[in-house]
Write a protein that binds this DNA or RNA. Structure first.
Lengths: 202, 202, 202, 202
DNA sequence: CATGAATGAGTGTTCATTCAT
DNA sequence: TATGAATGAACACTCATTCAT
C-alpha cells in the first residue's frame, strides 16, 4: 500500500521525524528511569509512553543501557558559578528545591539516579557529577584547613535535602521553598565554609 | 559476585539446620539487596550465595518480598536516645560513619534501601524510619520556632553524609571518622537546633 | 524430649494411629481429588486437610498417583443387583441422585473422576467401572436385538444425569430426587430395554 | 505426544506470518486442552506442538487462560434450530456422534471441557453452553408439565452419550453413527418431550 | 529504512519427592 | 519410625534484543 507520497517525502522531513521520535523516547526514558529506576523500567514501557515501537530504542540508542546514559545526562545543570560567590550555596539549594524538574519526575536528577545506583557505572556518574558540580565549587570557596571535608559536608547536606524532600517526603521539607530555608542556609554555609554566606539568591 | 567466601564457610557442619539456613539466607539477602537493590537481585543469587536451594526462600520467608522486608529491617536501631542529649547528633553521625555495617555491604541500611526506593512501600519504610528515628528525636531537642523544619534539615545532613560516604564515595568523607567530624558536627548541630551541642560521643 | 511413655507405647496403639492417619489421608484425598481433580490437587493440600505431614503420603501410599488410585476406588457401590430386576434402573438413578456422596464432594465418584480423565489410566478405570457396574447389568436385562447399544444408551443417560446435576448444575435436575424422576425413568427404561421397568425402588 | 505431524507441516512457508502462527497455536491448544485438560497442559507443550516459541502465546493471547478460552470457544455451534423441529434431537445427537471433532481430539468440545471443570469458570462456561444450546431449545419444544425437567433429562442423555463415546469408549456407542441410533432417539425423545419426534435428520 | 515476528535467557514460584536425622 | 529440611524439575510469564521482510 505504499503510495507515491511515501516515495516523494523529502529527506528533511524524515530527518525531523526521526529527531522528534528520538526526543520523545529520551523524554519518556528520563521520566521512567527517574521515577522507577533502571531495573523496574522496561524498554516497552518507554516505547509505549513515547507511542513508538520498542525496537526503535535499539535502532537509535543501541541498548537500554545507552538510552539510560543519554537520558540521565543532565541537560546542563545551569550556570551555578554565575552570580555572587556568597550566594553560591543558595543557588545550589534553589536548584534542588525550586527548580522545575518535572521532566525527571519532580526530583533532582541526582536524586533520581540514586534509585539506579545498584549499577556501578551509575554510581560513577553520580560521583563525578557531585564532585565536579558541587564539591569542587564549594572547596574553591572554603577558607582555612580541611576545605575538602567541609565542602563535602555541605554537598552532603544538599543531597540529603533533595532526598528528604522527594524520596522520604518529610512534611516540612517537602513544602519548603528556598526562601523558607534562607536563614538556615546562611548559618550552615557560613559555619562550614568559614566565610560569610547568604541564604538568598539575588 | 563475591560468593566464594560465603560458600566456603563451614559447608559440612550446617547441613539440615533450619535456623542456620534461615540465617545464611538472611545474611546473603541483606548483602545482595543492599549492594544491588531489590530488582537487580534474584532469589537464585541469594540462594547461591547462601549455598542452599532457592526454594527454601519460599519455604522460610514466603516470597522474595517478605525476605526483603525481613532482611532490611535493621537488627537494632541502637539506643540513640540513651546518653546525654547534647551528644545525640554525634551519636547519630557515629551510627552512619563508624558503625560496622559490613552485613549491609558497608552502607547504612537506610542508604542501601534507597536503592530499592522505586517500590512504594520501600519508600514508606524509609520514611517511617527517618521520621521516627531521626526527625522526631531531633525536633524534641530543638528550641525556638520552626523546630520541624530544622530537625528535618539536620536529618537531611546525616542522610546526605551517609550517601556521600558510600554511594558517591567522595574522597574526604569516605575516610573520615566521627572524631574528624566532631567540630563540624558541633557547629552545624548547634546552629540548627538553637542550643549547644557536642560533636563527641562520650 | 522422648520420655519413657514413648518407649512403652504398645505396638497395637501405634498401629491404630497409623491406620487412623491413613484413613484420614484417604478421606482428604477423596474429597480433594473429587472436587478439584488430580492435577489441581497437591499432596500438601491433602496432607494439610488431614493435619499430617505430606511425606506420610509417600510413606503410606508410595506416590500421589497411588494415593489417587486408592482414594478413588469406590468403597463398593452397593448391591445394585439386590432387589427386583424391574427396579434396577431406578436403583441406579437413586445411586446418582439420592445417595450421600459427601465424601466425594457431593458427586457420584464416577462423575468426580471425569475431572481427572486427562490421564489415560483414569479413563481406563472409569471405563471398567461403567461397563461392569452399569452396562453389563443392563444388557443382561434387555430384550430383543441390539442389547449392547441400548444398555449403553441407558448408561449414558445416567452418567449424563450425574453430570448435569453436579458439574453443569442445571436448575431442575440439581434439585430433583428419585421420586420426581420416577415416571420418566419408567418410560425411558421401558422404551430402551424393551421390557416393563419401574421408576420406584420399593 | 503426536507432535511429529504438526512439526512436519510446511515448516518453511509459514515463517513470520502472524495469522498463521496464531492459528497453529490455537489448533495445538485446542487439541492439547481437549486431550489432557487445562492443568496437565503446559504452554511449552502447546508451543512445541505448534513449532513456535512459547512466548508468542503471551504475545498473541495474553495468558494461558485466555488462550484456553479462545481455543475452547467452539468455532460454530452449528445451526441447530435450522430445520424441522421434530428432527431437533436427531440433529443434536448428530452433533455429538457424527460431527468431525478431530480438532478437539475427537471429542465434542463440551466433553473435552469437562476435563478442565476443576476451574469454576470453565464450569460456568459449560453450564451456559449446555443450558443455552440444549436445554432451552428442548424446553421450547416440550409439551405438558415439567418441561424444564424433561428438557434437562434429554440434554443429560446427549451429554452422557458424548461421554460414553469418547471418554469411556464403550464398545457399541463408540462405533455407532446417528443412523444406528435413530429408532432409539425417536423413542426416547418422543417419550420425554411428549410429542412425536424423529430420529433421522433429513 | 522500519515494522513486528521471533527468540532464549531469565524471573518468581510451586511441585512431587527424597534423604538425613 | 517419623519429622521436616532439602532438592531439582517444572511452571507461567517477562525481558532485552535480533532478524526477516
Amino acid at each position: 500500500m505504499s503510495t507515491v507520497d511515501d516515495l516523494a517525502r523529502e529527506p528533511a522531513l524524515q530527518k525531523r521525524d526521526r529527531e522528534a521520535t528520538r526526543a520523545r523516547l529520551l523524554e519518556a526514558a528520563r521520566l521512567r528511569f527517574a521515577r522507577e529506576g533502571y531495573d523496574a523500567t522496561s524498554v516497552r514501557d518507554i516505547a509505549g509512553d513515547a507511542g513508538v515501537d520498542a525496537t526503535l530504542i535499539f535502532r537509535y540508542f543501541g541498548s537500554k543501557k545507552q538510552l539510560f546514559d543519554q537520558a540521565t545526562t543532565a541537560d546542563s545543570p545551569a550556570d551555578l558559578l554565575a552570580g555572587p560567590p556568597e550566594e553560591l550555596v543558595a543557588r545550589m539549594v534553589r536548584t534542588v528545591v525550586d527548580h522545575d524538574w518535572t521532566a525527571y519526575g519532580g526530583e533532582h536528577p541526582l536524586v533520581a539516579m540514586l534509585r539506579s545506583s545498584a549499577h556501578e557505572d551509575t554510581r560513577l556518574r553520580i560521583r563525578e557529577e557531585v564532585c565536579h558540580t558541587y564539591v569542587d565549587a564549594l572547596r574553591d570557596l572554603a577558607e582555612g584547613e580541611d576545605t575538602a571535608l567541609r565542602a563535602e559536608l555541605l554537598s552532603a547536606w544538599m543531597v540529603g535535602i533533595g532526598i528528604l524532600r522527594s524520596v522520604v517526603a518529610t512534611p516540612a521539607l517537602s513544602e519548603a521553598r528556598t526562601s523558607d530555608l534562607a536563614p538556615h542556609i546562611a548559618t550552615v554555609a557560613t559555619a562550614l565554609l568559614g566565610r560569610p554566606m547568604s541564604g538568598n539568591t539575588d
